[in-house]
Design a protein around this nucleic acid. Structure first.
Lengths: 194, 194
DNA sequence: CCTACCGATCGGTAGG
DNA sequence: CCTACCGATCGGTAGG
């Protein structure tokens, strides 16, 4: 049973596509480029996938589902908001670290989804962001966080920092994803100042 | 003299192109799209610009020059590193706020520059980042900042937060750019925690 | 700034 | 998974 250790051909196509989309961007990536990476003809791609956009759709929505699962687990926890926020950040980083390529595509290329998929995607994203916002609100209410902070600014700063991680994190680095998440959380919660 | 209050036709072309590139991305924006926005034929664009890439080049390098100028001024200041960092952040935000559209293109589309322009661009960017890194180093050395922070992580978190601002900042918002810069600096320097 | 047009490349299909 | 091919669109040029 090769399927236990090997990716299905469709999964191989999608993985190679993710690499290509990350490097050149979705719009600048042609199906002929992708076919070449796989050593086949462009027309042959269509026995595995229905369209170029199907690949993008799968990449974006699979990542979204992973993020959601991670946050589900965090929300079940008891404890201070700062701890929940920290674990939310660590979870987000871990999900990204599991597939940096797909994460980069998720972040940079989702806008090339056509309607109604784009709308669905943005709804998922706003929902995820709002769940983090609720954690921050909780921390402000119970006195853990500064009460004068702008919530929108806080949550956007948070996501900016998290979402750019695939752009600079070196997977061969000695710093493991959990520790990276810890440090990022620490930086955002307690800042640079001593 | 209309030229005092009006943009040159070339500048108009570049501004409209920036809007288009921001909305659809560089690769997905056609010269015919751009011509339509300007109410002319696609071929007519070439009496104002040499190529599609020339537009991208100008947008990216003009923004880079603005960022550099802003940081030049900050580096001349005396005072604690935390103050310099804060002013560097405020300056960066102000430069972006002056042209959110060009800022978004600068951030998201520069990778479509061809060589050797891409290389030159990335060199400018790494230089700018390193100058911020030096300010953080100074603050760590003189005891203003935590000594255990990972410098790369700190500076990347900083730039992630700054560079995503054009994605969510509403120019019609009541919060002015200087105040936005202040709040962002405060969040990064002192964190969320009370 | 326009008309007319170029060669190249695009995503995708038919039929095997 | 291939050959053969489609109509559409691309950035850009010639010549006015």
């Amino acid at each position: 049973m090769d399927s236990v250790i090997n990716l299905s051909r469709k999964e191989q196509v999608i993985r190679k596509a993710a690499e290509l989309f990350r490097e050149k961007g979705y719009a600048a990536s042609s199906m002929r480029d992708l076919a070449q990476k796989l050593g086949i003809e462009a027309a042959s791609l269509y026995s595995h996938i229905k369209s170029k956009e199907e690949i993008l759709h799968q990449l974006c929505f699979d990542m979204a589902a992973e993020f959601r699962k991670s946050l589900d687990a965090v929300e079940k926890q008891k404890g201070p908001a700062s701890e929940k926020l920290k674990n939310g950040i660590i979870g987000h980083i871990q999900v990204m670290a599991k597939d940096l390529t797909a994460s980069a595509v998720f972040m940079n290329e989702h806008r090339h989804l056509s309607q109604p998929h784009l709308r669905d995607f943005l709804l998922l994203r706003i929902n995820y962001i709002n769940r983090f916002k609720a954690i921050i609100d909780e921390g402000v209410k119970n006195g853990e966080f500064k009460e004068h902070i702008d919530r929108k600014l806080a949550v956007m700063t948070l996501f900016s920092s998290l979402n750019w991680m695939p752009m600079w994190y070196d997977p061969n680095s000695t710093i493991v994803p959990t520790s990276l998440g810890q440090q990022l959380a620490d930086m955002l919660v307690t800042g640079l100042r001593k």
